[in-house]
Simulated assay, not measured.
Amino acid sequence: MADLEKGTSATASGVNHTHNQTGVYDEGSAFRNSPTSPVKNRIANPGSLGLFSFASTTLILSLYNVVARGITTPNVVVGMALFCGGLGQLLAGMWEFPKGNTFGATAFSSYGCFWLSYATIFIPGSGIIASYDGNMDEFASAVGIYLMIWMTVTFLLFIASLRKTIGFIALFFFLTMTFMLLGAGMFVTPSSASMGVSLQKAGGALGIVTALIAYYVGLSELLAAERAAVVALPLGVFKHD
């Protein structure tokens, strides 16, 4: 979600302030370095932080969903969901606002909140799972609805991504499909448990693809921020009239 991808630049315009060379407090200088200043500032692109945080947390949970190394209890992801996928993305989303990137701010902040809320479900102290009093079928249906709601949010972001780059289109397409399969897997009745497992594994496989795409896009933005980057990774930018 870099400035280049947004089609914007951070050039100074419209404001003329005198530089203070004496080290004395200069109100004009303070304004000039403000994140909301209409002139050039040095706010770094938070896109790579958000994308790497999202990709890492998604990859771990997706590997658990495909039962990698025989792991069937995914609770180790809770810490990652709280501090990496949750807090990391939320911070990235907040810094996208002063950069004027509505899409990035909405996406990162939303998925930061998703991971924080998802982790809370599996924290014993939250009492969420305990409130179902052993009725795991009802709990599974509740989680299924939760995932389907996030599928809807992701699909709306997918629509918005159609005016971004091929990289973002692929990212949100596969993420939409991941949520759909994981949610559908939670709705499967006990008599079709094997189908539910298959849907969960399919969702996990697509989640791995999604994470790898997010890593690629994040690395592309990280390299684009370096003046002397050895290589550049194309995102498939569309030219708008």
Rank of each mutant, 00 (worst) to 15 (best):
Leu59Glu: 00
Ile166Tyr: 15
Ile145Ala: 13
Leu51Met: 14
Ser29Ala: 06
Ala140Arg: 12
Pro38Gly: 08
Leu91Val: 15
Thr154Met: 11
Ala170Cys: 12
Leu82Pro: 02
Gly236Arg: 00
Ile60Tyr: 15
Asn65Thr: 09
Phe173Asp: 10
Phe179Arg: 11
Tyr118Lys: 01
Ser191His: 15
Pro46His: 00
Cys84Arg: 00
Leu90Lys: 00
Val231Asp: 02
Ala2Gln: 05
Ser126Lys: 12
Val67Phe: 06
Ser29Cys: 03
Ala130Asp: 11
Phe172Ser: 00
His17Thr: 08
Ser126Tyr: 04
Gly203Met: 12
Tyr118Ser: 10
Ser194Val: 03
Gly127Met: 11
Phe54Ser: 00
Thr154Phe: 06
Ser53Ile: 07
Ile208Met: 13
Phe114His: 14
Asp137Arg: 06
Met195Ala: 04
Thr58Gly: 09
Thr106Pro: 10
Ile121Gly: 07
Ala170Tyr: 07
Phe122Val: 10
Ser141Pro: 03
Gln21Cys: 08
Ala214Gly: 10
Ala205His: 03
Phe172Ile: 10
Val143Met: 13
Ala30Met: 13
Val39Gly: 05
Ala68Met: 04
Gln21Pro: 13
Leu49His: 09
Phe168Ser: 14
Phe172Gln: 05
Val188Glu: 08
Ser29Ile: 00
Lys99Arg: 15
Leu157Tyr: 14
Leu90Glu: 07
Val24Glu: 15
Thr18Ala: 08
Ser109Asn: 07
Ser110Asp: 10
His17Ala: 14
Thr11Arg: 15
Gly207Val: 01
Phe139His: 15
Ser34Ala: 09
Lys40Trp: 01
Leu82His: 09
Met186Pro: 08
Asn65His: 10
Thr57Asn: 10
Ile60Cys: 13
Phe52Glu: 01
Ile60Pro: 00
Ala202Trp: 13
Ser37Arg: 03
Val15Ala: 08
Ala232Ile: 02
Thr57Ser: 08
Ile159Thr: 11
Ile213Tyr: 03
Arg32Gln: 15
Leu162Asp: 02
Gly144Glu: 10
Ser109Ile: 02
Val188Trp: 14
Phe83Trp: 01
Phe155Ser: 12
Thr189Cys: 10
Gln89Lys: 01
Met195Pro: 05
Ala228Val: 06
Leu51Ala: 02
Tyr111Ile: 11
Ala225Thr: 15
